[in-house]
Amino acid sequence: MSVLAVYCFDPRDYGKSSSGFDKTGPYRASFLIESVADLRKNLQARGSDLVVRIGKPETVLVELAKAVGAEAVYAHREVSHDEVKGEDKIDAVMKDEGLEVKYFWGSTLYHVDDLPFKLEQMPTNYGGFREKVQGLEVRKTIEALDQLRGLPARGDVEPGEIPSLVDLGLNPSATMGQNGKPAANASLVGGENEALQRLRKFAAECQAQPSKENKDGTTDSIYGANFSCKISPWLAMGCLSPRSMFDELKKSTSRTISAASGKKDGGSGTGLNWLMYELLWRDFFRFITKKYSAAKQNSATPVTACVGAAA
């Protein structure tokens, strides 16, 4: 079976918002373009390719599905308002064509189906959430295949060109400094390969750090303000998943990693344990967004991040 991997640059994600701001600025767009290029490179190395289009997903995907005679469309389940609306549009057009859209869950350390409570019963404060998931196991990731089948022969679909900033209606000069060189903000390189390199470097730095013990017997979680993997842009873009990040850290260090330890500092006090603690915060916000997005309630209990806040 052949898989047609597709990425759509949706025109609605660019241009100006109703407030007059860029929906997607040049720095984020550059990072995205690099990430898509890296994904294509990785797929090509495995014998496949990435089809890239500029257009509305509900239009592009149905055209491609019809061209190759697809049996189903697979997509990553999202939780935020605009993304959920986009999924609804795709579902509607695919249903008209008799095609099923199958969604899978990602972007969190813990799988939504593994939570020890129904989503509508999720605590509305982080402290309550953390207590509920304490001791929960992280699902193992599925190893990527070394070799993939090429693009489907039917339809003769062309991979297409990856757009430039100009193609997306953005000004490339906005990412340049006054000296004509790339600005400091443009130093981040998008893509899975860059994310893995940074993650492995961070793990090595964690192992090299001596344990700092305070007078009260506790240990510091972070050694200085700059002691961070700074991996958030890659997580947000989907270049790396929290679970693959968790697995990579376990491979890179022999220290114990506890994502939901009962200790206040998130575990044994190492930078790695603190990182897992922060991933749990990320899970909380992702799940709480899904909870209220799914409920579609006009009035709901306010979400609080403070430990001990009323649920």
Results as ranks from 00 to 15, higher is better:
202 F>G: 05
83 E>T: 11
80 S>C: 13
2 S>V: 08
39 L>W: 15
296 K>H: 03
124 T>P: 09
4 L>W: 04
288 I>R: 02
85 K>T: 10
239 C>D: 07
25 G>D: 05
279 L>E: 06
127 G>W: 06
199 L>C: 00
310 A>R: 12
259 A>W: 08
281 W>I: 08
91 D>G: 09
182 P>V: 08
311 A>R: 11
307 V>H: 15
275 L>E: 07
139 R>L: 13
58 E>V: 09
253 T>D: 02
97 E>Y: 05
159 P>W: 01
256 T>W: 15
35 S>F: 04
223 Y>G: 14
241 S>I: 03
274 W>T: 12
4 L>G: 02
188 L>V: 09
231 I>K: 05
188 L>Q: 15
180 G>Y: 10
218 T>A: 14
170 L>C: 03
20 G>D: 00
224 G>A: 06
168 L>K: 03
14 Y>N: 00
96 D>H: 13
232 S>T: 15
153 A>N: 11
10 D>Q: 01
227 F>C: 12
95 K>V: 06
32 L>M: 12
252 S>H: 01
246 F>D: 09
248 E>H: 13
273 N>E: 04
187 S>G: 09
285 F>A: 09
23 K>F: 00
27 Y>V: 01
165 L>R: 02
294 A>E: 11
141 T>L: 11
149 R>Q: 11
282 R>H: 07
301 T>D: 08
216 D>K: 09
174 A>H: 08
177 G>K: 10
232 S>H: 10
223 Y>P: 10
221 S>A: 15
281 W>V: 06
226 N>T: 14
219 T>L: 14
93 V>T: 07
139 R>A: 08
48 S>K: 04
140 K>Q: 12
59 T>E: 07
200 R>T: 06
102 K>I: 12
30 S>A: 10
250 K>Q: 13
11 P>V: 01
77 R>G: 03
67 A>H: 03
115 L>H: 02
